[in-house]
Lab assay of single mutants.
Amino acid sequence: KELVLALYDYQEKSPREVTMKKGDILTLLNSTNKDWWKVEVADRQGFVPAAYVKKL
């Protein structure tokens, strides 16, 4: 499975999103959308801005 690194803190703004902290390592589930990537963090799945994460 592919992992991404959170480059910035992100606070979810809708139930479809997830909160992450800078430095978090997240499991990447889907990166087909260039703006929003689906990730899993702490047993929750949701979207984060693609610009806020980097593939490892």
Rank of each mutant, 00 (worst) to 15 (best):
K1F: 13
K1H: 13
K1E: 10
E2N: 13
E2W: 11
E2S: 12
V4F: 05
V4A: 11
L5H: 04
L5G: 03
L5C: 10
L5F: 09
A6G: 04
A6H: 00
A6M: 02
A6C: 13
A6Q: 01
A6Y: 01
Y8M: 13
Y8G: 06
D9H: 06
D9S: 08
D9F: 04
D9C: 05
D9G: 06
Y10I: 01
Y10V: 01
Y10G: 00
Y10N: 00
Q11D: 14
Q11P: 06
Q11N: 14
E12Y: 04
E12R: 12
E12G: 15
E12A: 15
K13N: 09
K13P: 05
S14D: 12
S14E: 08
S14Y: 07
S14V: 05
P15I: 10
R16E: 14
R16N: 13
E17K: 04
E17Y: 06
E17L: 05
T19E: 04
T19Q: 05
T19Y: 04
T19G: 09
M20T: 04
K21W: 10
K21Y: 11
K21R: 13
K21Q: 10
G23C: 10
D24W: 11
D24H: 05
L26H: 03
L26D: 01
T27D: 06
T27G: 11
T27V: 15
T27S: 10
T27K: 12
L28S: 02
L28M: 04
L28N: 00
L29Q: 04
L29V: 14
S31F: 07
S31G: 13
S31M: 09
S31E: 15
N33Y: 08
N33F: 08
N33H: 11
K34V: 12
K34P: 14
K34A: 13
K34F: 08
D35N: 14
D35H: 15
D35P: 02
W36Q: 03
W36G: 01
W36I: 02
W36F: 07
W37Q: 00
V39I: 08
V39E: 00
V39C: 04
V39S: 00
V39H: 00
V39M: 02
V39L: 05
V39N: 00
E40R: 09
E40P: 00
E40N: 06
V41R: 15
A42T: 10
A42R: 14
D43N: 14
D43R: 08
R44G: 07
R44I: 06
R44L: 06
Q45A: 13
G46E: 01
F47M: 09
F47G: 01
V48N: 00
V48M: 02
V48D: 02
V48S: 01
P49T: 02
P49Q: 02
P49M: 03
A50W: 02
A51Q: 12
Y52N: 08
V53Y: 01
V53L: 15
V53F: 06
K54C: 15
K54S: 12
K55D: 05
K55T: 08
K55M: 10
L56Q: 05
